[in-house]
Structures are given as structure tokens and as C-alpha cells.
Design a protein around this nucleic acid. Sequence first.
DNA 1: GAGAGTGGGTTCATTAAGTCAACCCACTAT
DNA 2: ATAGTGGGTTGACTTAATGAACCCACTCTC
Lengths: 165, 165
Amino acid sequence: MNRFGEMHCSIAQAVSIVGEPWTPLILRDVFLGLRRFDELSQDLGISRNLLAQRLDHLVAAGVLVKEPYQERPVRYEYQLSESGRDIVPALLTLMAWGDRWSTPPGGPPVLLTHSCGARFRPVVSCPHCGGEVTADNFTVEGGPGAAQGPGTMVLGAPGVASGIS
Amino acid sequence: MNRFGEMHCSIAQAVSIVGEPWTPLILRDVFLGLRRFDELSQDLGISRNLLAQRLDHLVAAGVLVKEPYQERPVRYEYQLSESGRDIVPALLTLMAWGDRWSTPPGGPPVLLTHSCGARFRPVVSCPHCGGEVTADNFTVEGGPGAAQGPGTMVLGAPGVASGIS
DNA sequence: GAGAGTGGGTTCATTAAGTCAACCCACTAT
DNA sequence: ATAGTGGGTTGACTTAATGAACCCACTCTC
């Protein structure tokens, strides 16, 4: 796609797909039930050609699937694919951060309720111990796919670690 | 800043700050220990004027702080502020998603180790029950700050819910 | 004390991307 | 036959990103 897609960094990979302007909001709307071109166009106020381009990109990336919901005339709707559904929690963590650091007047625009019944604020945790992950309590090191290249100098040297203030 | 900042949506708020091209990668690098203009410029291969602009933006948004680390001549370094440190877990979830759906040949470029000792893949969970949050097991509803406006139609009507397939 | 080096930028011309309004087409409903 | 709907495309205009060059204050080396 763009140059981010060529970097050996999973953040860059994710950014090459969901880092384009509007894309996270398109995914949010599709998740929330808006599936048709015109609904998205109206809700977001995005220009229609750009919306068409973004949808194409997301379909090509496998994040959305485009399916006809009627014949004559053929009409399409967009839905989240498996990878699209899998990115929803990541969007939630971004939302939680936005809520925390730039809450609009009146309080948070949305509230979340988990299937356990609790209203919750999403946290990132370690699946082994269940503890929350923060900038201070984990380390990073180069993995098997680490490589030198643009955007990855800092990881090129295996063993580089961080965190644990 | 841009039009995303005016939307009544916390995802849009987050996107208005970290959704600009390069910004997530700048934050990643600063977190990993690159703090100086030239280090960032070299690692990312970003043009220098754009890097300067992004750093200014991030400092203005309170995500980074700029501090002199020597006098005569004055030299500055950038570090994560509290809100900057708080966004790191959100970047991890994006990274995990990138790892899962577009792993580069050779495996994931980085490995994470939690303070509990386990090598882990970050998951998003509900702090009350500890259970993982997926696209299928939570609901969304308009909160006190919900408002009509561009980018928020779907949330304007309180009570809109989703999830729980 | 002349020249090279370093850190942290700014300026400028070129190219790519986003925006807005208008248009198009296949079909349906009235 | 006319108007409406869904899902786009086209084209002119404006904004943003890129790459290379330049600048300045200061230090280090000879």
C-alpha cells in the first residue's frame, strides 16, 4: 500500500491499514451497524470518492467484506471480516484513551457494557497473569522477524529492551 | 487541530492526535528510547520538516514533553508525558493485531515480556471480570456526552446498542 | 583561530492526497 | 414519465507530504 506497509514493524503494518484518515471511524460505524455506502457517507461527512477508495482498500486488506444484499439492482453492504472484528478491541483501547485525556464536555460519548454485566473501561492485560499492562511493566526485545530497515533501527539490534522503569 | 478533533467521539479524538501519519511510529520510538530529533529522523526516514511539525503537535497535545538536556548550546530531548505513557498499551494492541494478521516472513519482529515473567500477547479485557473483550461480547450505548454531529449520527440516539452477536 | 562536526531545526520546489460539487447509471416506485 | 435510491465516478481546487538544501550556535581538533 503505502510505505508503512513495507516496514518490518507490526505497528507500521497496522498503521498502514487503520492509520489512514477516516479508516478507524469507518470501522467503528460498520461495527455499530452502518453497512451501506450512503449511511457511512452521511454519518461521517467524508467525500464520497474518498469513502469509496477507503472501502476498496479495506476490502482489499481483508478487513471488510463486501456482499450483495439484493439483486436487480445489485446493492452491496460492507461487514467486518474476522480480522476486522479482531481489531475492534484495539479501537476500544484508543477510545478509552480519548475518553481519558480529552473527554468532551458532558462526559464520555459512549458507555460500554461487558457480557459479565459490568459497565467497563477496557484495559490491556497479560493473558498469563491477568495483570494490567502499562508502559512501565513490560519489556520489548527483537523477535525472529526483526530486521534492519527504515523505521526499525531501534529494533535491529536483538536484545534491545525497554520498560520496567 | 483537524476536523476529527471536533467530533463528539473519543475514537475521533484519539485519531486526531495519533492518527496522523508517522505519529504512532514516533511514539513507539520515543518509548523505545529514541529521544533526539536526529535519532528519530534517522530511524524513521521521515522528512525533517514533517518530523518537526509532528513533534510540535505532540508537545502541544500534551503527549510528549520537550526538555533541555544540556545548556550551551541548548539541546532538547522528547519524552512521553503521562498521557503519552498511557497510550502505549493501545499501541500494543495495534501491534498485536498487525502481528496476527500480517506477520512478516520470519515471525513477529518484537516479543513482549510482562513483569510477571511471561512472554505475552496483549489482550483487551474487562477490569471487573477479567474476561477478554471481543467484538461479540460487549454492548455500546450513548453516554452523557453523546451528541449529534458529523461522525456521530449512529450514537446520537441514546440506547443504540451493538455487539452480542 | 580555521575548519570540520553536531544537534536541531527552517525554507523551498515538487508531488501526492484529500475535498467539494456535479454528474452518471441501473433500477424501482408512483 | 417522473422522481427517487443506492452506489458510485469525474474533474477542478486546496491542502499535506517529500526531499534536498540551507542555516545557526556551539564544540572539538589541530
